[in-house]
Amino acid sequence: MRLTTLIIAFAAMAPVLGQPVPDYGLDWRTIGDPGNVAAQPADYFWLQVMEFGPVGRVDYEFRMNQFEMTNGRWVEFVDSYTRANPAANVSDLSLTGLSVRRSSDDPQNYGWYAIPGTENVAVEIGWFSAARYANWLHNGKVTASWAFETGAYDMSSFYQLPGGLWEGNSQHLPGALFWLPSWDEWTKSMHWDPNKSGPGQGGYWLYPHSSDSRPVTGLPGEPGAQTSGGLWPNVQYPIPVGSYPNSQSPWGLLDGSGGSSEYLGYWVDGVPDTRGSNRGLSPSHWDRLDYLGTTGFPDLPMATFRLASVVPSPVTLIVLVLIPFRRRRTCVE
């Protein structure tokens, strides 16, 4: 009897089975230790005062960009967005940031570029633009207007109130591959150390450079300098991301202090929130684990961002084999 073996192979199709999640050339760090304890208001002054928290517990693995988004990388997004949306206001600074410029007025080829010297500096844009970036990556960087409007965030859910504030669904959509980190995710990736007090003895560092002491403000390369936070108005030139390589979070993220303040995803208190100091804001307060900043308006170029994403799993081939069956003999009569 001849047996026919039916082989059915399933490639990765669903998160349960693992899925391809492109890196898009961004540097990622995986944040593990799911189910870590949260930071409690009882232990942190500002959480108590603001009646926030607990914060920092995340029950799943996820990834975070190692660096803040830069002007150089932002050029590609602006180019794609303005091609897909010819009616877009190309002078909108919340879209372009202030260091990304165009070299022509041709809607087919604006010639976007980052001001030389700022390619590796954090871009500052509006929260809406950061959310659209997450959508764009989710949709494979397609240059089409729809690709910027859904996927990670439903941009149609946002509307402006008479007073100028905005409302909408700032929580990322289920199934999003990329999103702006929540306060819990940002806090964990910047402050939670699974081995802070020893192997397996986790705890929170007060500051995002793996220390309970505030980072020292100074120029890159200055002895002891750990952050650009609070440098203003003493330095008049841009500082690239990653300029303080020894100021890392427990997971290897850089520029949690200084650079620019970073947008969070879900609006904690009704308006876009940020974490982290920038050059004008002293790290002693703004970099604390329990400190939450507020930008107020998602259509203003007030902060930068780094993305969170699912952790890509290897493609799993599920092979169903060896299903023998007998071929029916055709009787010839």
Partner: peptide, 8 residues
Amino acid sequence: VLNSTTYA
């Protein structure tokens, strides 16, 4: 530079 942005 304000924050990290070069304000041209």
